[in-house]
Amino acid sequence: MSEPRSSEVSGDHPHTLVVIPTFNERDNLRPIVRRLNDALPRAHVLVVDDNSPDGTGELADRLAEDARVHVLHRTGKAGLGAAYVAGFDWALRRGYQAIVEMDADGSHSPEQLPALLETLFRGDVGAVLGSRYVPGGRVVNWPWYRSLLSRGGNVYSKWALGVAVNDLTGGFRAYRSEVLREVDLHTVASQGYCFQVDLAVRVLDTGRSVVEVPITFVERENGQSKMNGAIVREALLRVTGWGARRWGTRLRAVLGSSGVFRR
């Protein structure tokens, strides 16, 4: 893994870093970075590229001529979760206060990011999720089966884990840096989209709140979705296992407090 090919963050740098993982997103990267720069002129962007064969990494290096853009090259495709952990590590070492994750494909609107950041530093908020499944949120241009899979997965995850979050699998989020330091990122084993579920639950377990802000999610126009059957199976198995452990812990606590386990 190489160091970013751009200037180091200076002492008067903006406090927000947007982490964008990429694999074969050459057609999408320049437009999304431009929109980010327009929406948040003082924020920085970190492109985490997994050695894309289509030249995404090389394009990112050219975009890094702008001091607000940084690039982290990885040697191969190791999964979404690993890419985000690498990007979060990079951000934490450089003192950013707000760390954002979003896709490169245009499905997440940079213009909606200020609304997430405005909520992040209120009270005990640890993370703000751009949510498709709260009032005001919506999905545009998805086929019915993709919508059914997403909604069903989120309903199941919410029930299995016993948490009050409607969109656990979404990837448009903002975190406080101190919260990411608390959750021990390097023990997050999830590589697919259940990385999002895992991290949201870990934030809740720190005692901080997770707030959902409605967003409009738009299906990508260029390139191919990374969703596949293996990712769905991983999410189902992991969420079921996590849920069983969480409900087991709660049941033991209830039985213990009621005296069932007392002699």
Score class of each variant (00 low, 15 high):
Asn166Leu: 01
Val165Lys: 01
Arg93Asn: 09
Ile99Lys: 06
Lys77Arg: 05
Tyr96Glu: 07
Ala83Gln: 02
Glu101Tyr: 00
Gly136Asn: 13
Leu149Ser: 09
Arg132Asp: 02
Ala86Phe: 02
Pro135Gln: 14
Ala127Gly: 07
Val71Met: 07
Glu111Gly: 15
Ala104Trp: 09
Val155Pro: 04
Thr75Met: 00
Leu92Phe: 06
Val134Gly: 11
Leu185Trp: 14
Gly81His: 04
Leu117Met: 13
Leu92Thr: 03
Arg176Phe: 13
His108Met: 09
Tyr133Arg: 15
Val71Glu: 01
Gly106Glu: 10
Thr119Glu: 10
Arg93Asp: 06
Ser150Gln: 14
Gly130Gln: 06
Gly76Pro: 06
Thr169Lys: 01
Val85Thr: 03
Leu92Pro: 07
Gly95Phe: 10
Ala164His: 06
Phe88Ile: 01
Gly126Cys: 15
Tyr133Ala: 13
Tyr133Leu: 15
Tyr133Ser: 13
Asn141Met: 01
Tyr84Gln: 00
Phe88Cys: 01
Val69Arg: 12
Tyr156Phe: 09
Pro110Thr: 10
Leu180His: 07
His108Trp: 12
Gly76His: 05
Gln97Glu: 13
Thr169Asp: 03
Gly95Met: 08
Arg146Asp: 15
Val155Arg: 00
Asp124Phe: 06
His108Tyr: 12
Arg173Cys: 01
Trp142Gly: 07
Arg74Thr: 09
Phe172Met: 03
Glu118Trp: 12
Thr75Lys: 14
Arg122Trp: 05
Asp124Glu: 15
Val165Trp: 00
Val128Ser: 05
Leu168Ile: 03
Met102Ser: 04
Arg151Tyr: 13
Thr119Pro: 13
Leu92Arg: 04
Lys77Trp: 10
Lys77Gly: 00
Ser150His: 11
His73Met: 01
